[in-house]
C-alpha cells in the first residue's frame, strides 16, 4: 500500500506528470459542469417562462442531457456536397480543443492549475481568442451563405471585443502587480476583492469584462453570429449530429471558463467565509454562469453594427480610462513595489 502511495508521490513531484493529472481532472470536471449547465439552463429558462423544462428522464430531467448526448452521437454524420470536406470535419474538434486548452492555466484550487504560467491571464485570454479561427473556418468551409454571414459577424465581433476584454482584465493585473492568476487571487486576500476594492474602477472593470466575455462567448444580447432568427444558425448552420454537439459543448465550456476567470480576477477566487478552497471558486463561477443564463433568456439581441459601435465608442475608451485609473491607484495608494 505504502509503495503505491510512494509511487503516486513521485509522480506528483514530476512537474509535467502532475500537470497532466491535474489537467485531466480539470477537463473532466469542467466538461461535466458544462453538461449540467446545459441542464440548469433548460430548467431555469423553463421556470422563467412558466414551463417545466425537461421532466421525463431522471429527477427533474437531469438525465436528459445524456439522452441528448447519445442522440447526437447516433445521428448521421452529414456533410453537404459542396463543402470543403476536410476543413469542415476538422473544425468541431478544434473548437473543443481551443476552449478546453485555456483551462490549463485557470486555477480552481490554491495549489494552482495544471500549468501555473507566469502570464496566466494573457495566456487564457489569448487561447480563448483563438476561437475566431475555427468559427471562421466553419462558416467558410460550409459553403453556405448564412454560415458565411454568421462567420463574418463572428470575426468582426470577436476581434473588437477582444480589446475591452483584455484591457478590463488588465485592471486586476495592475492592481495585483502580476499576470499569474494564483498571485492575483493572493493579492485579493483579506476580502480586498478587486470588484469592490478599490471602489469604482474594479467594479466597472468587472462589468466590462462580463459584457465582453458575453460577446466573446456569443451569448445574448451579443449572439449575433448565431442569431437563429436571422441567420438560421450562423456559422454552425450546416453542422449536425455530434459535430454540432461539439460547438454546443464548446459554447458552454467557454461560458464557464469566462465566469471562472471573472471570479478569479474580481471576486477573490477560492476565498470566502469559512475554509477557502474549491467550493468557493466553483460557487462563484456557477453563480456568474447562472447570471449569464438569466441575461440570455431576458434580453433580445443587438444588431451587428450597433454591437460594434457599442464596443468602439463606449467599451474601449472606458476600458482605457479604467486601466489608467488602476495605474493611478497603484501609484498613489500602494506605491510601486
Amino acid at each position: 500500500m505504502s509503495r503505491v502511495l510512494d509511487a503516486l508521490r513521485m509522480i506528483w513531484e514530476i512537474g509535467w506528470l502532475r500537470g497532466l493529472v491535474v489537467g485531466f481532472v480539470t477537463l473532466t470536471v469542467v466538461m461535466l459542469i458544462a453538461a449540467f449547465t446545459i441542464w440548469f439552463e433548460r430548467k431555469w429558462s423553463g421556470r422563467m417562462q412558466n414551463r417545466p423544462g425537461p421532466t421525463e428522464r431522471g429527477y427533474g430531467g437531469w438525465l436528459q442531457i445524456f439522452a441528448d448526448f447519445f442522440k447526437l452521437l447516433q445521428k448521421e454524420n452529414l456533410t453537404p456536397t459542396a463543402t470543403d470536406r476536410r476543413l469542415f470535419d476538422f473544425v468541431p474538434p478544434i473548437v473543443v480543443f481551443v476552449v478546453l486548452s485555456s483551462l490549463a492555466v485557470v486555477p480552481y484550487v490554491p495549489q494552482g492549475p495544471a500549468a501555473d504560467a507566469s502570464v496566466g491571464v494573457l495566456l487564457a485570454l489569448a487561447i480563448s481568442s483563438l476561437m475566431v479561427f475555427p468559427v471562421w473556418a466553419a462558416g467558410w468551409s460550409s459553403n453556405n451563405k448564412w454560415a458565411l454571414l454568421g462567420a463574418m459577424r463572428a470575426v468582426a465581433q470577436s476581434i473588437s471585443y477582444e480589446i475591452p476584454l483584455v484591457l478590463s482584465a488588465l485592471v486586476p493585473v495592475i492592481l495585483a502587480g502580476s499576470f499569474r492568476l494564483t498571485e492575483i487571487v493572493g493579492a485579493q486576500a483579506d476580502w480586498h476583492w478587486f470588484a469592490f476594492w478599490p471602489p469604482g474602477p474594479g467594479l466597472a472593470a468587472f462589468v466590462l469584462f462580463y459584457l465582453s466575455s458575453l460577446a466573446e462567448a456569443n451569448r445574448i444580447p451579443f449572439d449575433i453570429p448565431e442569431a437563429e432568427s436571422e441567420l438560421v444558425a450562423g456559422a454552425t448552420t450546416e453542422y449536425g449530429g455530434m459535430k454540432f454537439g461539439m460547438f454546443y459543448l464548446g459554447e458552454y465550456v467557454h461560458t464557464f471558463v469566462a465566469s471562472s476567470l471573472a471570479a478569479l480576477l474580481f471576486f477573490g477566487g477560492w476565498e470566502g467565509p469559512g475554509p477557502d478552497g474549491l467550493h468557493w471558486m466553483l460557487a462563484k463561477a456557477l453563480i456568474l454562469t447562472a447570471s449569464v443564463i438569466h441575461v440570455r433568456w431576458t434580453l433580445v439581441r443587438y444588431r451587428s453594427d450597433q454591437l460594434l459601435r457599442l464596443c468602439w465608442t463606449y467599451f474601449v475608451p472606458a476600458a482605457l480610462v479604467l486601466v489608467f485609473a488602476a495605474g493611478l491607484w497603484r501609484i498613489l495608494a500602494g506605491g510601486l513595489a
Binding site: 437563429e228 432568427s229 433568456w297 434580453l299 439581441r301
Partner: peptide
C-alpha cells in the same frame, strides 16, 4: 422572437 431568437429573451 424575431429579435431575440428562439433561444433568448424573445422566446420569453
Amino acid at each position: 422572437l424575431d429579435m431575440g431568437g428562439a433561444l433568448g429573451g424573445g422566446s420569453s
